[in-house]
Amino acid sequence: MEINLLAGSSPHLKSGESTQKIMRDVIIALLPAAISSVYFFKVKAAMLIIVTVIACVTAEYAWCRITKKENTISDMSAAVTGILLAFNLSPSVPIWVAAIGGVFAIIIVKQLFGGLGHNFVNPALAARAFMMASWPVQMTAWQKPGWDAVSSATPLGIIKNGGGISGQMPEFWDMFLGNIGGTIGETSALAILAGAAYLVIRKVITLELPIAFIGTVGFMTWMLGGEAMFTGDFVYHIFAGGLMLGAFFMATDYTTSPVTFKGRIIMGIGCGLLTSVIRLYGGYPEGVSYSILLMNLVVPMIDRFLIPRSFGGGAVKNA
């Protein structure tokens, strides 16, 4: 009896988890926000999502063909980048601008730095920053939800311009459900929380980073956001703008966030501080995406300085 046996290093058992399955879960988790974006911003939102996904996936495919690398579109990470990029765009952004953003995210930010797992900043956010610098008018032309392109300010924009004047600020429930101006994917806190809950249940993300991020923004805006200390309207700061989307879906991006619990807390607090400072004292009404991009840059350092002590390490002096 001659049998051809496989040898190999232990373990001989696998959980069956794969990159593709994780990315599929992320896409499922993004669906509620996608549906709400189409509900509020109608066909404009649907077009933006479709165009950015096609641009990202096509760019990834073309890159793999040109560089003669294995085709990686089946890991679905390019599609995730596409959806996230669309979510970060105002409904008034022209289709061709969105398409260029998608190509930039995949080719310049992701592939030129080594592809999946090697990009040091979040591709969708870096592309958004690039688009903000290149087409600032189109990128910040906000609209009211609905079929007609009625221009409107975002809640944070209202606050920035000395707002808070009664009648201008949207109701809390409109903000929670997403019936406000903003990027197409960020407006509905409800949809984002539903998706985030799915990611937590599926163990794709852990909560320490989003909680540290949102908690820091809440605390800082409560402390410093009002006329006097500790009178700021932190509820508005938490539910308005891109904080929910950023905290649960952008900051938790595996490649550009720390791998340890402590590291993720530090990243969350750092993002929260930067967001609060930009919102309260900076030139822009919103700071979530820049704060995440800035913290992305220090992730390698966070991981290097936070190498954990081994179990049993340092507990007893070595004789």
Partner: peptide
């Protein structure tokens, strides 16, 4: 396939390694 830095290995290590 390539490491996506998910950190699951860090969370699973009973010896607290990376």
């Amino acid at each position: 396939s390539v490491c996506i830095r998910c950190g699951k290995c860090v969370a699973a290590c009973p010896m607290s390694l990376m």
